[in-house]
Amino acid sequence: MLMQTKKTYTVQEATRKLEHYCAYQERCHQEVRKKLESLHMIPEAIDVIMVHLLEHNFLNEERFAKTFVSGKFRIKAWGRRRLTLELKKKDIGKVNINQALAEIENTEYIEVFNTLAEKKVNLITEPNIYKKKKKLIDYLLYRGWETHLVYEKAKELLG
């Protein structure tokens, strides 16, 4: 009968591993804590490593929030509501969320929204105008765009 042994890490090994993990891509505290738990680190060791990562600037929630918002907005075209929701799921504080959202220029925000809506409306093949309008609205709301913007745009594009 073979015993299944779990690899264990010293605090130094785990710290180096997590430094690399954080340097590779911005991480939030929650992700790092989960990673440490998956390495079977004890709570005291997790705290020591978290403090080290914060002190050496491997971990920074403000920077994470700004990077997250910038990436998801520019690449996935998410609206402010979805961005806020996703950051809250990652336990990011209200101040950091608001600072990150403030980095999006209003003109760019509206431009991205208009481009996304116009592109989507042309891709929907639904012949029934009401169903087409509903599909557009559902799509934009799912992406986290504000309700008033979505309904105004749907009315403008599809009457």
Rank of each mutant, 00 (worst) to 15 (best):
Q30L: 12
E31Y: 00
H40A: 13
L2W: 10
M41K: 12
H29G: 05
H52P: 02
E13T: 01
S70A: 15
V51N: 15
Q30V: 04
F68P: 03
H20Q: 12
Q12F: 11
L54G: 04
L18S: 10
K34G: 13
V69I: 10
L39T: 05
F68T: 02
L59S: 04
K34R: 06
K72W: 10
K6I: 15
Y24R: 09
E19C: 10
L2S: 14
F58V: 03
S38I: 02
E37R: 02
L18N: 02
V69D: 02
K72H: 11
A65P: 00
R74S: 12
L59H: 00
E31R: 01
E26I: 06
R63V: 10
L2E: 05
K6A: 12
R63L: 13
V51Q: 15
Q30N: 09
R16I: 07
R16N: 12
F73K: 07
V48C: 11
E26V: 09
R27W: 01
E55C: 08
S70H: 09
H40G: 04
I49M: 08
M3E: 15
K72R: 13
F68R: 02
N60T: 01
L54D: 11
V51K: 15
V69A: 09
C28E: 14
Q30I: 04
T8E: 09
R16C: 00
K6Q: 10
Q4C: 14
Q12A: 13
E13G: 03
A23R: 15
S70I: 06
V69L: 09
F58D: 00
S38E: 15
F73Q: 05
S70T: 07
I46F: 00
A45S: 13
E61T: 02
T10R: 04
Y21T: 05
V11H: 04
A65G: 06
H52C: 08
G71Q: 13
L53I: 08
V11Q: 12
V11A: 09
